[in-house]
Design a protein around this nucleic acid. Sequence first.
RNA 1: GCCGACGUAGCUCAAUUGGCAGAGCAGUCGCCUUGUAAGCGACAGGUUAUGGGUUCAAUUCCCAUCGUCGGCUCCA
Length: 598
Amino acid sequence: MSEEIKYEDSELYKIRHSAAHVMAQAVLGVFPEAKYTIGPPVKDGFYYDFELPRTLTPQDLKQIQKRMRKTLSRQYDFEKQVLSADEAREIFKNQPYKLELIAGLEAGGVDEYGEKLEGEVEISTYTHDNFVDLCRGPHVENTSQINAKAVKLMSIAGAYWRGDENNQQLQRIYGTAWNTKEELDAHLWQIEEAKKRDHRKLGKELDIFAFDEEVGPGLPLWLPNGAVIVEELEQLAKQMEREAGYKQVRTPHLTKEDLFIRSGHLPYYAESMYPPMEMEGGKYYIKPMNCPMHHKIFAARPHSYRDLPIRLAEYGTCYRYEKSGELFGLMRVRSMQMNDAHIYCSEAQFEEEFMAVIDLYMKYFKIFNIEKYVMRFSTHAKEGLGKKYVDNERLWLKTEDMVRQAMQNGGVRYVEVEDEAAFYGPKIDVQVWSAIGREFTLATNQVDFSVPAKFDLKFTNANNEDEIPLCIHRAPLSTHERMIGFLIEHYAGIFPVWIAPVQAVLIPITDDHLDYAYEVKKKLELLGMRVEVAADSGRMSAKIRKAQKKKVPYMLVVGDKEVEAGAVALRMRDGEDRGAISVDEFITLATKTIAERT
RNA sequence: GCCGACGUAGCUCAAUUGGCAGAGCAGUCGCCUUGUAAGCGACAGGUUAUGGGUUCAAUUCCCAUCGUCGGCUCCA
């Protein structure tokens, strides 16, 4: 990776940045009264945000693109000019957003996102043709370096000024730009391919989950096939957690408000919680997370340092009132089951416990063959102490160091991001991307050196004194919803045999072979396999096609020869025909594959 | 929640400028008895998301609600 040119320094970056200017010029051509804001390059393209007199239509996009092509057919230089704040103000006197940016640059070197700039700040403009934009570059030298056939405007969207929902909402136009038309076509093709593995599409095709308007948005229904996957994941988690010394607990879905007052979730988290129910004068909430319940379990009995660490695990069912626009298939829902656990330990035990959790992550990633992810280490920021972060710098630095040390000792690659921690401690998030490119936190591993105190959690240490334990919140398998959404896309629906909802389909060639098919099915089911018989009146090849579309791992064709020999003709879903093998041989092969989760 | 687009059979999609709502697949029932990705036929399937409005007439035009999608914000 390090040998590659950074995107920010690449030619493509300049092309996209420059294309954004050309687009802004075109928009101003159509709407002379438009206020333009910022327009940076992004992954695969660029955007530009505008305040416009009316909302844009797809027709407008065509017109804007046409104007862009006209500009790109000529040869205009991009000319940089460094100027004073006053000079800049004169040029952009009718552009309030630009004036705000100039003020930011002048005052303390704040960039277009409100982030601090390093070093000396100069104010500069880039001009091509008749269009001037406040910009620090870089750009291509001349518009002719942008291939008009490799630029395409993609969509119109709403966006808030400086990303703050309290600010003015602007209209954003997304575009994509490449070196050549071939690259553009390849990109568009890739988008189409990605849609095919979108979990919302595959989830429907493979009968994994469904939403129902009368049930409500963000409340998925697991169809039988989906429930199989849920069950397999739970069994995996329970097995791994048993081996790692966790104890299973179970807690209610409802709780009095007192619990969330103590935990500190109310009122700060209230807007993500379902409104309370009033019962006998008291308020009850549906839980948005399990931690307070687990803390109460820890507090339910006295503990000696000899008992620690105590690891409490639960696939807890939680409900969060996510804003309607934030819902996204299974990836972002309102009802969810978390692969949750809380580990209570002493400071001395912390590193080992944290490492063990990371180790568990790695085991899971190996099982699922997950390679494309980023571990994000989120730390506190000094300025936030006592505000968004618990005011205990010693423990922040100590636990952050412990986490850093554990990650480095384990040889785990991560990126460190300041000022992204939970309020109670640093954390490691595992970031992944959905098929259509949206980023998600799949798993999370958080240190908590604060909330245990709020719950008066304690254990008796070796000196016979009360001591507050540290707590590790961890969810390596995320929630069932997000994990399965992710797995559907990760495998493109071609699940490994152990989680495949249907593992084998018996395909009788004629009805004469039905009895034998059922006989084999029963034999396989006794071993715990999920098997179906294709008993419809179609041709064998039609039955294969059906099984193939459902991505069933094993297709077992049975005809006269197989009945005679006590065999099945094994066809794999990649099309490989393994010919006739004995039923016992198939059982050996299948049960081994399933048991090894390969 | 905000901005925009969209909503026709279980699924994927048709339906000239407002003029009788259709097809393929899936399903059911027959026939065929079949060797590695679609055998043939018949039947059934709809208050065009929901509720109002305009009109002689609305899937089509207008309004509201619900839902989905693309983004923003936010997140397991």
